[in-house]
């Protein structure tokens, strides 16, 4: 999560940095209950914690898309995709990586 100071080096000179969009699946949960009206017609959906390829322990909260439950496996390679939640508001989601 963005913070005003770096917990590793104490620097206040922080800025966004471009990443590869590659990650591995750390954990996931399929949500069957809508805890907000927006999600009433979207359940069930998969909430996931992924580890970005750039750094061990660099976790991101996201959704897992375009994958059948039987194919979900912790540790699987993922790549970023984007979804427009509402006009102008785009979020990063992840899907299984296409082998190169």
């Amino acid at each position: 999560m963005p913070r005003p100071v770096c917990r590793w080096c104490g620097s206040f000179d922080l800025a966004p940095e471009r990443v590869s969009g590659r990650a591995t699946l750390y954990s996931w949960t399929r949500t069957f209950k809508a805890f907000h009206p927006y999600f009433v017609d979207k359940i069930p959906y998969v909430l996931a914690t992924v580890t970005l390829a750039e750094q061990d322990g660099l976790q991101l909260q996201t959704n897992l898309v375009d994958v059948a439950e039987a194919d979900v496996a912790i540790g699987m390679e993922l790549e970023v995709d984007f979804r427009e939640l509402t006009p102008g508001y785009v979020i990063p989601v992840f899907r299984p990586a296409v082998a190169e």
Binding site: S27, T29, F35, T62
Partner: peptide, 24 residues
């Protein structure tokens, strides 16, 4: 300020982190 990084993905409830902890 942290909420945007959870709510946008439909993460609102402690039941959801419990799902992540239990799965792992």
């Amino acid at each position: 300020l942290d909420a945007q990084f959870r709510w946008s993905f439909g993460n609102f409830s402690p039941t959801q982190w419990a799902g992540l902890l239990m799965q792992r």
